[in-house]
């Protein structure tokens, strides 16, 4: 069974490192977005639902 198993794509160290960096950057960006929405919700209070056109 194992003999037939394809090795698949093996990432080089550089590829692994850059992918990890990109993943961390995306996580940080999403974290900032969540914090931003949370902070604005606190600042606006109930008025957060009032959005003038």
């Amino acid at each position: 069974m194992d003999d037939n198993k394809q090795p698949g794509i093996v990432l080089t160290e550089a590829q692994k490192k850059s992918r990890r960096q990109r993943s961390i950057a995306i996580a940080l960006a999403l974290g900032v977005l969540v914090l931003l929405f949370f902070a604005v919700t606190l600042v606006k209070g109930p008025a957060v639902l009032v959005r003038p056109m």
Binding site: I9, T12, S18, R19, Q21, R22, I24
Partner: peptide, 13 residues
């Protein structure tokens, strides 16, 4: 036919 694996760093973006 192998897929392209990005080596782009955060600095490139």
């Amino acid at each position: 036919l192998s897929p392209r694996i990005s080596e782009a760093e955060v600095g490139d973006y």
